[in-house]
Amino acid sequence: MSGDRPSAQELEAASGATIGDVLAPDLTVLFCGINPGLWSGATGFHFARPGNRFWPVLHASGFTPRELAPSEQSELLGLGLGITNLVSRASAKAADLSDDELAAGAEVLAQKVARYRPQWVAVVGITAYRAAFGAKRATFGRQDRTIGEAGVWVLPNPSGLNAHWSAATLAAEFGQLRQAVMADDECRCG
Results as ranks from 00 to 15, higher is better:
residue 38 L to G: 02
residue 93 K to I: 10
residue 34 I to E: 04
residue 11 L to F: 06
residue 4 D to V: 11
residue 111 Q to H: 09
residue 173 E to L: 07
residue 158 P to M: 07
residue 31 F to M: 03
residue 109 L to Y: 03
residue 159 S to I: 09
residue 163 A to E: 10
residue 93 K to E: 12
residue 183 A to M: 14
residue 112 K to I: 09
residue 61 S to M: 07
residue 44 G to T: 12
residue 78 G to V: 11
residue 141 G to Y: 11
residue 139 T to K: 15
residue 182 M to A: 15
residue 168 A to Y: 06
residue 92 A to Q: 13
residue 105 G to P: 08
residue 73 Q to Y: 04
residue 6 P to M: 04
residue 150 A to N: 05
residue 41 G to N: 08
residue 171 A to E: 03
residue 114 A to R: 09
residue 52 N to M: 00
residue 90 A to K: 06
residue 184 D to I: 00
residue 103 A to K: 13
residue 29 V to R: 00
residue 5 R to V: 14
residue 40 S to D: 15
residue 154 V to I: 14
residue 32 C to L: 12
residue 181 V to I: 15
residue 40 S to K: 01
residue 80 G to H: 03
residue 12 E to A: 13
residue 58 L to P: 05
residue 73 Q to N: 14
residue 103 A to L: 11
residue 116 Y to T: 09
residue 83 I to F: 07
residue 165 W to K: 03
residue 47 F to R: 12
residue 150 A to C: 10
residue 85 N to M: 07
residue 182 M to C: 07
residue 125 G to P: 02
residue 151 G to Y: 12
residue 72 E to Q: 15
residue 10 E to M: 04
residue 102 L to M: 11
residue 71 S to K: 14
residue 59 H to P: 00
residue 179 Q to W: 01
residue 110 A to N: 08
residue 185 D to V: 10
residue 121 V to D: 02
residue 164 H to Q: 12
residue 61 S to C: 12
residue 19 I to T: 05
residue 115 R to S: 10
residue 177 L to I: 11
residue 27 L to W: 01
residue 31 F to S: 04
residue 185 D to Y: 08
residue 145 R to Y: 04
residue 121 V to Q: 10
residue 101 E to T: 07
residue 140 F to R: 10
residue 107 E to Q: 14
residue 1 M to P: 10
residue 186 E to N: 00
residue 167 A to I: 12
residue 72 E to I: 14
residue 96 D to G: 02
residue 79 L to F: 10
residue 26 D to Q: 12
residue 30 L to S: 11
residue 186 E to W: 01
residue 18 T to D: 09
residue 55 W to S: 04
residue 34 I to L: 01
residue 11 L to W: 04
residue 52 N to S: 11
residue 14 A to Y: 00
residue 80 G to E: 03
residue 112 K to C: 07
residue 14 A to P: 01
residue 142 R to H: 13
residue 125 G to A: 06
residue 168 A to T: 10
residue 186 E to A: 01
residue 28 T to N: 02
residue 23 L to A: 11
residue 39 W to T: 03
residue 48 A to L: 09
residue 101 E to P: 09
residue 110 A to D: 08
residue 119 Q to E: 14
residue 142 R to D: 01
residue 29 V to E: 00
residue 117 R to Y: 04
residue 156 P to T: 08
residue 22 V to S: 00
residue 3 G to C: 00
residue 97 L to Q: 08
residue 54 F to T: 06
residue 150 A to M: 06
residue 20 G to W: 05
residue 88 S to G: 13
residue 168 A to C: 00
residue 96 D to W: 03
residue 144 D to W: 07
residue 117 R to C: 08
residue 72 E to S: 14
residue 114 A to W: 01
residue 183 A to H: 13
residue 65 P to G: 11
residue 179 Q to R: 15
residue 158 P to Y: 05
residue 31 F to P: 04
residue 57 V to K: 00
residue 178 R to A: 15
residue 80 G to D: 05
residue 133 F to A: 04
residue 184 D to T: 14
